[in-house]
Design a protein around this nucleic acid. Structure first.
Lengths: 213, 213
DNA sequence: TAGATTGTTAATCGATTAACAATC
DNA sequence: TAGATTGTTAATCGATTAACAATC
C-alpha cells in the first residue's frame, strides 16, 4: 500500500531527523527536512502522512515524536536477523559495515559455498555452508538477505533462499532474479550504475531529476 | 533525452545479448530478450528504438548487430578512466571487482585522505592523497567516480570532486549529495535498501512491480 | 498467403506538483 | 489578527501499457 519509493524516502527523513535531533532542534518544518534530503517540501508532507504522525501549522513537526513514529513504521518490533550470502570481497565489506552498527536489522548469519569458509567468523558474523541455509534461515527467523554471490550463481542461490523462507533480497549480482511475486528484490548493480552515470557524465542529455529517490 | 531508466535497462539488455550470443543465437525476439531481463516485450521494443537499430518482423533483432549498436551508444569512444574515492573495505572490494574486468570503463585512480594509503597500489590501482584530486582528475580525463567515503565526509569530498571536473558520481554514502544540475548522481545506499526490503519482507503490502528497473 | 513480430500512436496508470481551505 | 505551515484535493506530468497498421 505504501509505495517503495516513499519507504525509501522515509528512511532518508529518519536519518536527517536524527541529525537534526543531535543538533538540538525540537521541531522542524517540511521545507527544512526537504532541504536536508533533497526533495520538495510537498513531497515531505505527503510522505509523512503515510507515517501517521501529524505536524501542526506554526510549529511543523516535533522531531522526537516524528522520529519515534518513523521507527515504529520502519523498524521491526523486535531486532530482526538478516543474512548475507556470498562471503567474497564485497560480502566481507558489507559485514564490516553493518557489524559496527547498532541497528534493529542485524546480520547474524553468512553463507558461502566454499567449505573452507564454513565455520569461520567474519567481522563477528558466523559463516555457514550454503547447504545449511535451508535449516538456519528458518531457525534464525531470517526474512531478508544481502546476496553477494557471482552472477552465474545468483539465480540458483536465490531459488534456494526463497525455498528456505526468504522474502526480501538485496541483490548485488548483475542479473535480474526471477522470484515469486511475494518476494521483494532490490537491485544494486555497480556496473550498470557506473555505466549509466558515465553515460550522462559524458554529456548525454539527462532528465534533470535533481535530488529525488 | 534518453531517460535514466531506459539507459539502465539497455545495459541489462546488453548483458543478456552477450549471453545469447555465447549460446550461439544469431537473432532474438523482443519477448525472448524481455524474458531474460524481466521486463515486458513492449518495453524492450520501445527502449531499443532509442538505440537506433531496427529489428525486422519475422526475424526479430540480429544479436551481433544489436549488440554493436548498444556498445556504440553506451560505451565511450575510447577507454575511459574512472576514479574511486575512499579506499576502505567497500572501496577495495569494488577495486577488486572492477580490476578483474576488461571494460571500457576502467578505474585508474583511487583517492583517500589517509596519507598512509597514498602511494600504495590496491588491486592494481594507484592510490593518491585526496588533495591530489584537483590535479589528477583533469590529467587522467576522469569524468565519473565511485564515492565510497564515510557519510560525514561525502558532501565535502563531492564538492571537491565536482570542482575538479567530475560530472558523474555513484554515491555509496547514506546521504543525499547536493550537486549542480549538470552532475549526475546515482545513490547506492545499502542501509536504506536493506530497510526497504526488510519492510516489505515483513509482509507489508508492496506495489507488485515484478521485475522492472 | 497466413501468422507472428515490428515500430508507433493512443490510452492508461501512477506519481509528483500545484493549489487551497483549515489551522495554529 | 496576520502570516506561515499544515493536510488534502485537483491538475499535471511522465512513463508504461495496450492497440494496431505495416512488414517480412
Amino acid at each position: 500500500m505504501i509505495p517503495e519509493r516513499t519507504i525509501g524516502r522515509i528512511s532518508l527523513y529518519r536519518r536527517a531527523l536524527r541529525d537534526s535531533l543531535a543538533e538540538g532542534s525540537a521541531n522542524i518544518y517540511s521545507h527544512e527536512l526537504a532541504a536536508r534530503c533533497g526533495v520538495t517540501s510537498a513531497q515531505v508532507r505527503r510522505d509523512l502522512m503515510h507515517v501517521g504522525y501529524n505536524g501542526s501549522p506554526n510549529r511543523g513537526y516535533m522531531v522526537r515524536e516524528l522520529l519515534d513514529s518513523i521507527d515504529k513504521l520502519l523498524d521491526p518490533q523486535v531486532a530482526e536477523n538478516v543474512a548475507l550470502v556470498g562471503v567474497g570481497n564485497l560480502g566481507r565489506a558489507i559485514l564490516a559495515y553493518f557489524g559496527s552498527r547498532g541497528m534493529k536489522l542485524r546480520i547474524t548469519a553468512a553463507f558461502d559455498k566454499d567449505p573452507t569458509k564454513a565455520g569461520r567468523v567474519f567481522h563477528g558474523c558466523r559463516c555457514y555452508g550454503i547447504e545449511e541455509a535451508a535449516a538456519v534461515i528458518p531457525s534464525e527467523g531470517i526474512l531478508s538477505v544481502m546476496l553477494t554471490v557471482p552472477a552465474s550463481e545468483a539465480q540458483g542461490v536465490a531459488d534456494l533462499l526463497v525455498a528456505a523462507g526468504v522474502r526480501g533480497i538485496v541483490n548485488f549480482a548483475p542479473v535480474r532474479l526471477r522470484v515469486p511475486p511475494e518476494v521483494c528484490v532490490e537491485n544494486m548493480d555497480f556496473t550498470t550504475s557506473l555505466e549509466r552515470v558515465a553515460f550522462f557524465a559524458r554529456g548525454n542529455a539527462m532528465k534533470t531529476e535533481p535530488l529525488r529517490l
